[in-house]
Design a protein around this nucleic acid. Structure first.
Lengths: 330, 330
DNA sequence: TTGTACGCGTTATCAA
DNA sequence: TTGATAACGCGTACAA
């Protein structure tokens, strides 16, 4: 029951703790093979496990990374977490996870908690400007890596994907299918994400010499939002819809199902994120895929203090059947 | 940049570290209000954050819980993690998350890592018998709480749901819709889960005085498995299918879509878990819901050393449209 | 080749 | 009402 410490081990092996430490940390090149073997054998036998708290206290390195997400239920974040966790474990790090429900206070609390635990870096998907302020005020700029929801200030470390390009990609796909009147279901408008996607989207339409109209509805990136906004959408004459994340598109699918409306016959839809599930919807959802693993790798580089402080990775359009050609302009 | 310690704080305030410690831990009932105020003010001003490693070293309490999951991408585990994380945070604990891909070695590695970090308890969804052995060998019985995938030995702590009942529920629903020839797509047969569900399922059919037949196909709880097994299922004459988790059912939906087979017209399907997405499938999936939050609460109780060591919680059938009455027996 | 001694940031036990 | 001081378990100069 009692925990074996290095002291116990030393006594048992008839050597000093210093010797034990050297052996266990593979810095025993100058020790006799006999003692090395003895110590290692005993460590195994007694089931010695080093105390990371003591180690961290001494070395000031915790081998621990904190990840703060708004929602571990959102498949996009989950996939991201999985990749990050994978790379981290490979590199010998431990992952601490905190969930904030997208609430500002929770985000700041999470940062504080992680600071207490002396995690080496925090990877943060922040939903509020106040969190950025907090990081700035406390001079945590090099301690926090912002992920996905970006405020593009040079003082911050961040990794994200190219939202402007994503918006443009969607617009081009819609235009290719002759949609010039489109509804745009955004997320909260203070997200840089949202602004960028919209900017890219609008830019493409403007470049294109054809009259067009874009009407925005603001959602909050939840399934529920898509479901609720459906009522408004049903009444609207426009039939091409760009949902700024897949979750809201799913909500809309659901509303259509309830209302016995056939999406294939009535709507042209594009989502964003390419979460795993959307390919199983009917019709399968056309969407913009963010390069999750590449982003996770960049995060790793930032953790290891390599590479650029800012990374904006390219996205790709995944064409599925939810985007049909509109036959004629109304 | 440099971290403020209690020593710094003590010097600044002109008191001893002991005093500082007392103030910060709210055990200063016998100190003068003046010093209390001074210390607290300075702590705020200098941005003092206590070092949890030092604290843990001393108190032997890390306020940390380790959660080991096979797959943080599986919506069922994710929802579970969310609830556990929620209750944990409420209680002032930190959550360490580890992902194992369902690989035996990874599971054991994760346990070791968490031991090093002196987490107070480990919550473990284990996929391998070898992991149970490991826990037993190392006398970790009271250190590990097994979740969901249970080996029902009294020596272990575990929290799960009533798989036997779940299987029975499914059978009764199928019988109510006059299905007496059914396919059963299971998970790996060494899972106690799978055995129990099957036992409950069979029992109900046996009790019912009507000729019946149950054919099992073994999957591995992934979407892919459902997709692959579809080929076999298509060739089979039986049209009622019990998938032992929703993911495999989703895979089957996908295969049907690819093959242009209408589920509504051809099949009666029941899944298991009630992950969020299945209600958005078409047709929405009938499935067995596990009481996720109740399970998370039990886990909390076990962490806090309250309540029974073993908990098996009741499940409920969620009826949706994937289960139609079969019109006539073939 | 190995051991001694100290420090990391806390808490807890005394004594003052 | 406060302050020394000894742990906690580990790493690491430096000495032997």
């Amino acid at each position: 029951m009692k925990r074996i410490t290095m002291k116990d081990l030393a006594k048992e092996a008839g050597v000093s703790v210093a010797t034990v430490s050297l052996v266990l940390n593979k810095k025993a090149s100058h020790l006799s093979q006999a003692t090395i073997d003895r110590v290692e054998r005993l460590a195994k036998e007694l089931g010695f496990v080093s105390n990371l708290h003591a180690k961290s206290l001494k070395t000031k390195q915790s081998q621990t990374i904190g990840l703060i997400l708004p929602d571990i239920t959102n498949a996009f974040f989950t996939q991201m977490a999985k990749r990050i966790e994978y790379h981290l474990t490979q590199a010998g790090y431990l992952l601490l996870l905190n969930h904030t429900d997208g609430v500002a206070i929770q985000e700041i609390m999470a940062i504080k908690r992680f600071k207490q635990l002396h995690v080496e870096k925090i990877v943060l998907v922040a939903s509020h400007v106040s969190t950025y302020h907090f990081v700035e005020e406390h001079r945590l700029n090099h301690f926090v890596i912002f992920l996905d929801r970006i405020i593009t200030k040079p003082a911050f470390c961040w990794v994200g994907s190219d939202d402007y390009q994503g918006g443009a990609l969607v617009a081009r796909a819609l235009i290719a299918h002759h949609h010039y009147h489109v509804l745009c279901v955004t997320g909260p408008s203070h997200f840089t994400n949202v602004q960028e996607r919209l900017a890219g989207f609008r830019e493409v339409y403007q470049q294109n010499n054809h009259p067009y109209d874009v009407v925005c509805l603001e959602g909050d990136f939840t399934v529920d939002a898509g479901d609720r906004l459906a009522k408004t959408i049903f009444k609207h004459p426009y039939k091409a819809i760009f949902f700024m994340n897949d979750l809201m598109a799913i909500g809309f699918y659901h509303a259509c199902m309830e209302a016995a409306i056939s999406i294939q016959e009535q709507y042209a839809i594009i989502g964003y994120d390419d979460i795993e599930f959307v390919r199983y919807l009917s019709p399968p959802l056309t969407t913009v895929r963010q390069p999750i693993d590449a982003m996770a790798r960049r995060v790793m580089h930032l953790i290891l203090d390599e590479g650029e402080m800012h990374e904006k990775l390219p996205v790709t359009l995944i064409s599925r059947k939810s985007l049909y050609a509109k036959r004629e302009e109304e």
